[in-house]
């Protein structure tokens, strides 16, 4: 009994640890969707390229991914901005399926590229502290997970400060709500869309960099599954707020962890799919709509 309780508490805490990474990768998707009404199917590809970039930089410089993220995130801001100008902008007026297919294609190209350069072997970044743990009472926590959580949280707080405290950040939020009104107050909507796509990609880049510390990876895995998880998270948490995304990230991670703890590890990846389907069928507006309905009732 006590042992089960400890395992549940452990599941809670490790859910929290993973949630930082989940929220970082999902918020980029939400940001881009909010501003451009485009689902960035290349998000997982960007994470994957960022993971390999981090691997190479770690091998050549010996610097920890927690340090490298300061370089990798801005690098993928540029990659995202270029992708927006070269690919996305051209189809922004077309039907949604066009950008969807184009970005899906971009993801496949990225995968092929990574396979060509790095091969299909499973990789990981293993700094000295990788196997170290800390005990809090009966609960065991791995250092790498703590670090990744803290890094993710710091990134999201910085982003939120930017979105709320600067003209450019406010313009990005406003663009998601009324584009024409933005043009009418002097916002260069094309440029700000580019910045938003860049920021979303930078978040995916940061997530890709950080995940090297916690997941083994190859050009395909675990990025496809993570993509699905991001969809689940933004459908659950909504596109409006970072809080919704963070909360949904935690809920999904918790559901996964409890499934692993109390049932079978093989079911972990099934959870996000089940949650996605249930959310779409039962509460189409996600958590936010559910809470709003509560408040009205």
């Amino acid at each position: 009994m006590i042992e089960t309780l400890v395992r549940v508490v452990e599941a809670f805490i490790s859910a929290l640890m993973v949630a930082g990474l989940y929220a970082t990768m999902s918020y980029g998707l939400a940001l881009i969707y909010g501003v451009m009404k485009i689902i960035n199917l290349a998000n997982a590809g960007i994470m994957m390229l960022a993971a390999f970039t981090t691997l190479v930089l770690w091998q050549t410089t010996g610097l920890d991914p927690l340090v490298l993220v300061v370089v990798v995130a801005p690098l993928f801001f540029v990659v995202g901005a270029v992708l927006e100008v070269v690919v996305v902008r051209r189809v922004s007026a077309a039907a949604p399926i066009v950008s969807l297919l184009l970005l899906f294609g971009t993801w496949l190209v990225m995968q092929a590229f990574a396979n060509l350069i790095f091969g299909g072997d499973v990789r990981g970044v293993r700094p000295a502290y990788i196997d170290s743990v800390v005990h809090v009472g009966d609960v065991t926590l791995a250092y790498n997970r703590i670090f990744v959580f803290v890094a993710g949280a710091v990134i999201l707080v910085l982003l939120e400060l930017f979105l709320r405290g600067t003209f450019l950040g406010r313009a990005i939020r406003a663009l998601a709500q009324d584009r024409e009104a933005c043009a009418l107050v002097g916002v260069d909507t094309k440029r700000v869309s580019m910045v938003a796509f860049g920021l979303g990609s930078a978040l995916a880049g940061a997530a890709g960099c950080l995940l090297t510390l916690v997941f083994p990876f190859d050009p395909t895995n675990p990025f496809g599954v993570l993509q699905l998880k991001s969809f689940t998270i933004i459908v659950l948490g909504g596109l409006e707020s970072i809080i919704g995304v963070a909360f949904a990230s935690f809920l999904l991670a918790l559901a996964e962890n409890l499934t692993v703890t109390l049932s079978r590890p093989q079911l972990e990846n099934l959870v996000s799919f089940v949650v996605l389907v249930v959310v779409l069928v039962v509460m189409p507006g996600g958590l936010a709509a559910l809470l709003r309905r509560r408040r009205l009732a």
């Binding site: 406010r170 939020r173 406003a174 709500q177 009324d178 024409e180 009104a181 009418l184 409006e240």
Partner: peptide
């Protein structure tokens, strides 16, 4: 016309 405010700001 129609004000076009940003409702969530």
């Amino acid at each position: 016309e129609g004000r076009k405010l940003w409702p969530n700001l």
